[in-house]
């Protein structure tokens, strides 16, 4: 694998992660528990979709085959998507959505902080802007998780159940693939396993305040980063890509 190929793959993955999660969060628009939260979740989704557009456009340029953001988003099948599994999990109840965001945000923020120092100017630029956005995302998801954990009996149980459900998707976040190892070695991106301490500190701190238990489960699912997804992603993409697939080549 050349460095260029690795860079393509990494930018594509970041695009997939942010697009899939942004899409998932946008599913709340019009259905949130309270109007203020419709607006808050839409803001988060908009940030992520904006980041996805930047990453995918960059991936397309690095690849150099004339694929733009939409070709990459709309004309790849689920086996070609390389996002982390946690981002594609269905919205579930609001506790699932908050926990999904929280576990991701706690990883996303330190990753971006490291990318903001990347010698790759484009990644650096995207990350510098995204750091501010994701700082807010993590704050929002952490606060809700604390509210749920330390709120009512029902909210505590729902949050714990969501945590237990989604925990198995967190291991994969820190597993570098060949592209990530190559880029880390070249100093373009951080070593993913080095982000784990930061993630652990955030997760443990918030769970403690929320009076929630860190799940004991050791077994971790993985595969998303290599195109082996849960069944949810195929359905999500079928919906997302329907117009582009039905009207090949049309402009929208």
């Amino acid at each position: 694998m050349t460095q260029q190929e690795a860079l393509f793959r990494f930018a594509l993955r970041m695009g997939d992660n942010t697009l899939v999660l942004g899409h998932r969060i946008s599913e709340w628009c019009g259905h949130a528990p309270v109007l203020e939260e419709d607006i808050a979740q839409a803001n988060i989704a908009l940030d992520l979709i904006g980041q996805a557009r930047n990453y995918l456009a960059y991936a397309g340029e690095v690849e150099g085959k004339g694929r733009g953001e939409d070709a990459l988003a709309y004309l790849r099948d689920s086996r070609e998507y390389i996002n982390a599994l946690i981002t594609e999990q269905p919205k579930g109840d609001f506790a699932h959505t908050i926990v999904r965001s929280f576990l991701w945000d706690a990883f996303h923020l330190p990753l971006l902080k490291a990318l903001a120092n990347s010698p790759d100017e484009r990644l650096k630029g995207i990350a510098e802007k995204a750091v501010k956005e994701v700082t807010y995302h993590l704050r929002h998801s952490s606060e809700w998780l604390v509210r749920f954990g330390d709120g009512t009996g029902e909210s505590h149980d729902r949050a714990q159940a969501a945590l237990n459900d989604l925990w198995r998707f967190t291991g994969e976040l820190f597993e570098a693939d060949d592209a990530e190892r190559l880029l880390a070695k070249a100093g373009i991106i951080p070593q993913l396993e080095n982000l784990k301490a930061d993630w652990n500190a955030t997760v443990d701190g918030v769970l403690k305040e929320a009076t929630l238990q860190r799940p004991a489960g050791e077994w971790m699912a993985s595969g998303g980063k290599h195109g082996m997804h849960t069944e949810h992603l195929g359905l999500m993409l079928a919906e997302m890509q329907v117009l582009q697939r039905t009207h090949p080549g049309a402009t929208w």
Binding site: V34, L35, E36, I39, A40, N43, R139, H140, E143, R147
Partner: peptide
């Protein structure tokens, strides 16, 4: 706007 507490009020205001 509506918010459960002051911190949420400030953040909701940011979003709204």
């Amino acid at each position: 706007l509506h918010a459960a507490d002051a911190q949420m009020a400030v953040e909701n205001a940011r979003d709204v």
